[in-house]
């Protein structure tokens, strides 16, 4: 996987699935739902995210529902990668399954809103261009990296 470079959008702890994609928008298409993503904590989210940006959060990101619309809407809004201190397990599996990279980084709180980041998935490094700092994370296991590279579980099944 190539390096991913983008602007960080920073949030705190416990960003749950009812915040990422509220239940009342579940009937909408992903394109429409993405416009309401993160509305509970940041109504400007959709308008400010550019393609290839990075969402950074702290503990327990994506807790709650098994709704896959949560990672899908973030991906649709343009998020290329999520960096959090920790994830709720269903969200984490969902993100990888739909082809959205999710990384665990202990120092996620040091990253500030609008920092420019460069992520190297294979090497397991994040370079914070704004602060001039480098962080290390444990790269994803090979089987998950392969799935991400293929573009998610469905794309991988198609190839098999």
């Amino acid at each position: 996987m190539d390096k991913i470079k983008g602007i960080a959008h920073k949030y705190g702890n416990n960003i749950n699935t009812d915040i990422i994609t509220p239940g009342k928008y579940m009937e909408l298409s992903i394109e429409e739902m993405a416009k309401h993503a993160m509305e509970g904590v940041d109504p400007e989210f959709y308008s400010k995210v550019k393609e290839g940006d990075i969402l950074v959060a702290e503990n327990n990101f994506g807790s709650g529902s098994s709704r896959e619309t949560a990672p899908q809407a973030l991906k649709q809004a343009g998020i290329a990668i999520i960096i959090a201190k920790s994830y709720a397990r269903i969200f984490y599996r969902n993100a990888i399954n739909i082809g959205l990279a999710a990384l665990e980084l202990k120092e996620a709180e040091e990253i500030l809103d609008r920092d420019e980041l460069e992520v190297d998935m294979q090497a397991g490094t994040i370079f914070n261009l704004t602060q001039g700092k480098t962080y290390r994370f444990t790269p994803l296991p090979d089987r998950l990296l392969t799935m991400l590279e293929a573009g998610g579980l469905v794309a991988q099944l198609e190839q098999s």
Partner: peptide, 21 residues
């Protein structure tokens, strides 16, 4: 559905997954 763990009350290994999974 995330509350699929309810079936754990029956000693059933039950858990929520996403749609793609």
């Amino acid at each position: 559905d995330s509350h699929s763990c309810t079936a754990g009350a029956f000693g059933c290994f039950a858990t929520g997954i996403g749609s793609t999974e």
